[in-house]
């Protein structure tokens, strides 16, 4: 198993990803897989929800899927 703490689920990390390109919730979850962050599934969902609420990203439908992104 990968060591935990390899990837950190932080506001800065989420901001960085969403500034690069629009992402779905699934895309984001893939970036912060529990096996890489050491967080539980619930903690991951809660943390991402809080961070997305705070960042309040733009939303855009691409291929019928909601994507989030941040304008610089």
């Amino acid at each position: 198993a990968a060591s935990s703490g390899e990837v950190q689920l932080t506001e800065e990390a989420v901001r960085r990803y969403l500034s690069r390109k629009p992402m779905t919730t699934k895309d984001l979850l893939k970036k912060f897989q529990t096996k890489r962050t050491g967080l539980s599934s619930d903690a991951t969902v809660n943390a991402l929800a809080q961070l997305l609420k705070r960042l309040d990203p733009e939303r855009k439908l691409i291929a019928d899927k909601m994507h989030f992104f941040l304008k610089e």
Partner: peptide, 20 residues
């Protein structure tokens, strides 16, 4: 597993739709 990822995505979207 992909089903766990699906569940997490669904839970996250539910949280966000609640708010936004």
């Amino acid at each position: 597993s992909s089903s766990e990822a699906d569940e997490m995505a669904a839970a996250l979207e539910a949280e966000l739709n609640h708010f936004m």
